[in-house]
Design a protein around this nucleic acid. Structure first.
Lengths: 117, 117
DNA sequence: TAGAGTGTGTAGTACTTACTCAACATATGT
DNA sequence: ACATATGTTGAGTAAGTACTACACACTCTA
């Protein structure tokens, strides 16, 4: 179903061949889980793990955490917190940007970056 | 802990006295749950219910669903979906707006409203 | 004084999430 | 041939989520 595991495995194996010894067992030790568990996650036998683990996994394969979380069907909890503080405002903004092209959102990001309040 | 139940009860009782017969039992029937369950939710004995129920509850007391969901510690799943489609972009934007004043976000909303892409 | 309507307390449960443990199989290097 | 490393399998589980069922107690009206 989800491409989460597949994506992670591919990236891990790619890095593994590039010198980094990222074996499944090594990674499982690094992030503190049972190798069998990780094996099942990578093959899609098990659902993606908790947010904490996903973030560790992202760091290891040098991937953006939001991207990996999204592949796992999740949204980072720090974004949650931000949205929940002003639900109406953020709700409106995000829904409005639903169908906006990437570059429109991107220019908003840049605009806000330079914003002086 | 959460003000969700308290908030809902207060609003329900306020409306109840304004003519609308919003008794706990009536509401529980409307949204399709056991009265005892709703009673416990309102008093904070039980955690807030599922998203679906919260949305029904919001409609009944005529409250914004994002606001009630936020009180329940949740973010609407339609926002989730939007964010997950472009996690990096939205992640960046939202984090950048974390400490922006309300009116700055609001003016973004309006800007986007008139946006022509 | 009976019935209807209101809220509450106790108990239980089905389902999901997020894992662990230990044994097994296969390949790799020495 | 042996140790070591690698991935896999099956079984089990503790804790959380999202509720239901139903008996109880009070109040208010006809």
């Amino acid at each position: 179903m989800s491409d989460f595991g597949k994506y992670f495995r591919e990236k891990r194996e790619a890095l593994s061949k590039k010198g980094k010894g990222l074996s499944l067992r090594y990674v499982s030790k690094e992030i503190g889980v049972d190798p069998g568990y990780l094996s099942k996650i990578e093959r899609g036998v098990f659902a993606p793990p908790s947010e904490n683990l996903i973030i560790k996994m992202a760091e290891i394969i040098d991937e953006d955490k939001d991207v990996l979380l999204a592949l796992a069907g999740k949204v980072s909890s720090d974004l949650h917190i931000i949205i929940k503080k002003r639900p109406k405002l953020f709700g409106q903004l995000i829904r409005q940007l639903k169908d906006a092209p990437d570059n429109a959102i991107f220019s908003l990001v840049r605009e806000v970056q330079d914003g002086d309040w």
